[in-house]
Design a protein around this nucleic acid. Structure first.
Lengths: 243, 243
DNA sequence: GGCCGGCGATATGTATACAATGATCGCGCA
DNA sequence: TGCGCGATCATTGTATACATATCGCCGGCC
């Protein structure tokens, strides 16, 4: 069986003889799964069986488990004790927490971003915004969603605080999950040229404007959600039948 | 060998027949190591060998690896590819990032905390502050350090945002590491009754006062550090001999 | 006498084998 | 015919065995 896996691996990836450090391979797999979740190719609730993943990526369950644990700590997947892994289905409370956190951190970062942003940064951000609009226009939702998350994460990076940038990146990933559950189809999170407007304020060096705009932007995304508390698992029978 | 381990485990923990879920055991071990690091019983740079830990806690390396990976993601330990795990030694940059992040988040949380705090919360916080002062007085530095971190984490909890509370908790843990590296011995991070004063502002429901006080408090801690960039590993020979 | 290179020990990375547990399906009985 | 119960199966949790890379040491060589 494992021979077949090895063959499949070499065949699929077409890696030239020497297999990459192994740690890099893990990193790569992590990104693969992570992207699939963020791009909604794996919907919340989808089960992630260790065997299946191990076979797909051509490594043993050991490595997969490591990656799943990491994803669980990033709250992209949920690890239920003897039931295995599945893509996290954020609750309404979590959604609120995530957007409140984004309000605080992303908005708080804007003044510093406006102070430190370089021409190079601006160029890159404009490019990302452009590609996002193009993806939206041509109906590539998956790509648009990821670009939108990337945009916010990249923005946070500019402030120069690695810890906060990391936190924002994680919040954006989770936001993507939240959109998958509570978002309205056809109505993507970020309005089409919000990001361009934001870049404008930053290019003008106006941190406060950027901050206020980001705040409205995030509020708009949050407001566009239909948070209806699906009450899927463990419906509260007590509450339902109490009156 | 494994028989001996099993015996040792049962003998040591005195667990009654049924061994706890296993997941709980892992949680417990994680906390043990985590506490040891936060309390400076394990100093930054200390190596954490998998075999040794496996033997101490009576589980196999598999479980230990899982825990070490989690600690690495929390940035309490550093996992060097083929060199194993060691307690993280924060750089000066990281220290700055952590305290900047705490400024933003902990201060930002204060108004909400002041709004939501209950009598029960106040009682608990006062108790923690009291125990912290007692520990300080009786020279139990380890305990005092942990209680201080716990205090800040507990405070963040009150705002009701689990995501942000989690983030603060992690920042506090890392702060403890930073104190271990850059702190002056005998001069602990938090001044002895800063925490009591803070409680006072919160009890009075004055969120803005609390916020300003927290800001000063954190700045004071940061200012008390001697950040001297040890330049321990990889001394920059180019820079040293360039002139 | 000092330095380079090989060698052995040690520790980590990976895979696999085994055990335990929860889910599913089928059967028997009411 | 519907329900409860039991067996089987699928899947995860854990330990161990093996492969591999790194570090320190020692001998030979310059």
């Amino acid at each position: 069986m494992n021979q077949r896996q090895t063959v499949a691996e070499r065949g699929g990836a077409g890696r030239p003889g020497k297999r990459g450090d192994g740690a890099e391979r893990h990193e790569e797999i992590h990104r693969s799964i992570s992207d699939a979740i963020i791009e909604h190719r794996l919907r919340p609730g989808a089960r992630l069986r260790e065997d299946a993943l191990a076979e797909v990526f051509g490594i043993s369950r050991t490595g997969i488990r490591k990656i799943l644990q990491r994803l669980a700590l990033e709250q992209l997947v949920t690890l239920t004790p003897r039931r295995g892994a599945s893509v996290t289905r954020p609750t309404a409370d979590e959604a609120k927490d995530v957007f409140d956190a984004r309000q605080m951190v992303e908005c708080g970062l804007m003044p510093e971003v406006a102070r430190r942003i370089t021409a190079e940064d601006l160029r890159e951000l404009r490019d990302m915004a452009l590609r996002e609009r193009q993806a939206l226009k041509s109906g590539e939702q998956s790509t648009a969603i990821r670009l939108s998350a990337d945009f916010h994460a990249r923005l946070a990076c500019i402030a120069g605080n690695a810890t906060l940038a990391d936190f924002v990146e994680r919040l954006c990933s989770r936001s993507s999950l939240i959109l998958a559950v509570y978002g309205n189809p056809g109505h993507l999170g970020c309005e089409s040229h919000d990001h361009d407007d934001l870049i404008g304020h930053l290019a003008a060096g106006n941190g406060e404007r950027a901050q206020a705009f980001m705040s409205r932007h995030l509020k708009a995304i949050e407001a566009s959600l239909s948070i209806v508390e699906e009450e899927a698992e463990a419906p509260d029978l007590h509450r339902i039948f109490s009156d």
